[in-house]
Write a protein that binds this DNA or RNA. Structure first.
Lengths: 194, 194, 194, 194
DNA sequence: AATGAATGAGGGTTCATTCAT
DNA sequence: TATGAATGAACCCTCATTCAT
């Protein structure tokens, strides 16, 4: 109907989401003021409210999409080439990639600074972290154990722990650790390998 | 000469600090309302202000003490019995112990949700994380490498990474991971060992 | 019945009133904290409440007594020796005397910083300033006019103005003007004289 | 280049300052609640903070401008027509004019109810009252004395006293005394004249 | 659609008042 | 009686949200 308008709307939405993601990820939901997001996006204070009903909705939207992304990323892992270890290596690098980092940090922020985090977000995340990404990867870990690449142990527990380390890593001072992702990934993989 | 009074004051201060630590660690400084701390401590809103000048001072005090504790814990590591690996194992367990967890999470919160964190706290932490705990442990790692217990690599970088994993771990949902600290410590140690 | 106790009670009341007068006169009712009065009186915070129901009552009491004093001082003027001018001179000096100053300033504070001033106090003062002290002095002014000592004009208006100058004077920086009361009184008298 | 915006901002600032002046002058700084100012200005509570950083800053601004105005008014006196007495008469009327009254009362409030008055304001006023307005008028008084219009006496002391009476006058209940400024000015002038 | 001024609910903090000792 | 710790209402100020332009 109004494809041009719709496009404009989408562009704006993306612009705002991008700015919001950056600020939310860095400062958490209660540490973020709408004016910060507006500044980051280079727009006026009130404009966000044409595209998102509230700060809360904006935050929820971002979380939702981050979880969505993560979920689909997980689904792709089995399709990756190489041995289980190589698959996990690629996945880990992807997660730690600059472009995805913010999304993961956002999720972590939602976990950590629970104040101000909408209840539905809490539920979404709880549900997600407890079940989703891990389930998909269990077969891969099992396979790694079978072929002797990975260490023994409950695959689910191993993965849970592995992810908690990854998310933990991302919360460290960004600038200092970024430098040598490859090296860190190798170290991380030692957790899973023999 | 006023041991009774001083004692009472100290008890209250500790009570408030304990409550504040719990809330700050969970929600960050800007996500924490003074009323939450009061509720957690079972006191009225105004009372905290007899013992701490402001929310900010309360937060700063907690950070200071957490850093102090951490620092002294690190100093004790070389005195622990056993091989380097055993020393690091004990230290890691200590850190992840329920009693110390909150302090570490507090520091992490100060790092992560920078908004609202007083500038002096930022400086304190920056100084601390960049230099202190790691330096003390370097000789231990080196020794571990010499006797073949630990893997090769720059000891400083290894430790930095090891700690980032530890702090990261502590930010995960407490209740879910607490269960099997010993197991997780063993997994963590794989990072350092051959 | 319990004259000893009653005496003690009265001493305490006076002690508190004296301190309160000093602070109220200097800072006004809303600028005065109960803790200031306690400090000034050298007692604990809560003690005033054994002797006065509230800050407001304490203030009201002081005002009442100040008005009372002033009223009776006025009544005495006709009994003073000398011509009308000499009578007014003595009265003026009395008012400006260190010992009475605070009471007058208190009244003035009640007039000036009306916020926080209880309504009944407002009424008391209004009633007082509009009628009381002046009425008593009118005959004296008239007599002064008759004998040619005082200038012409409505005695009531003259006195009203004269008193507004006196109270105004007292609000100036105390230390600087105190020095030469006699001189100032002579100048003031020029208002009334030919 | 933004004359429209700047104008709007200025109008609002003036509106708020006008309301604040009225309330501060009547009730002093600690007796004034920001909500009173907002009510007086017919705006919401929060709006003042777009134009003034704090209650204190608002107060300081008003004091500064009042002192400025007063200073420049004094500077103009020597340029007024007429004899010294006539010059002082005009000046006095100007000061007591409704429009200027509030400013003078504000200054007086700052002097009288020292509590809550910012330190810099205290300094500003101290400096001002000790030196400024009087110095400028000394030559006029001297001239008046020379031509026999004014009484003998130290001009500085005379002026100091004269102004203390003026400011004192302004602290009286406004409504009652306003009525006959001219008459009061003539009475006041008797202080200075033979 | 976009701006930024305006609103007002809510959080940090103070302080009059009460209460346990 | 006296203390001073404890309470909680109320004030200053911020900021999410709305509204006039």
């Amino acid at each position: 109907m109004l494809p041009i308008n719709e496009k404009k709307v989408d562009i704006r939405r993306e612009q705002i989401k991008k700015a919001a993601l950056k600020v939310f990820a860095a400062k958490g939901i209660s540490g973020t003021k709408m004016s910060m997001i507006a500044d980051e996006a280079g727009i006026s204070q009130g404009l966000s409210y044409r595209y998102f009903k509230s700060k809360e909705e904006l935050f929820t939207t971002l979380i939702q999409e981050a979880l969505e992304e993560s979920k689909s990323a997980m689904k792709n892992v089995p399709l990756l080439p190489g041995t289980p270890k190589e698959q996990i290596r690629i996945m880990t690098k992807t997660i730690l990639d600059e472009s995805n980092k913010l999304s993961f940090m956002l999720i972590q922020q939602a976990n950590a600074t629970s104040e101000g985090v909408p209840d539905n977000v809490k539920k979404m995340i709880e549900q997600y972290t407890s079940t989703n990404p891990i389930e998909t990867l269990i077969p891969i870990v099992v396979k790694g154990q079978v072929i002797g690449e990975f260490c023994e142990g409950d695959p689910y527990q191993l993965l849970l722990f592995y992810f908690s380390l990854i998310t933990g890593m991302m919360l460290q001072d960004l600038s200092s650790i970024e430098c040598d992702i490859d090296y860190h990934v190798e170290l991380l993989l030692k957790i899973l390998t023999r």
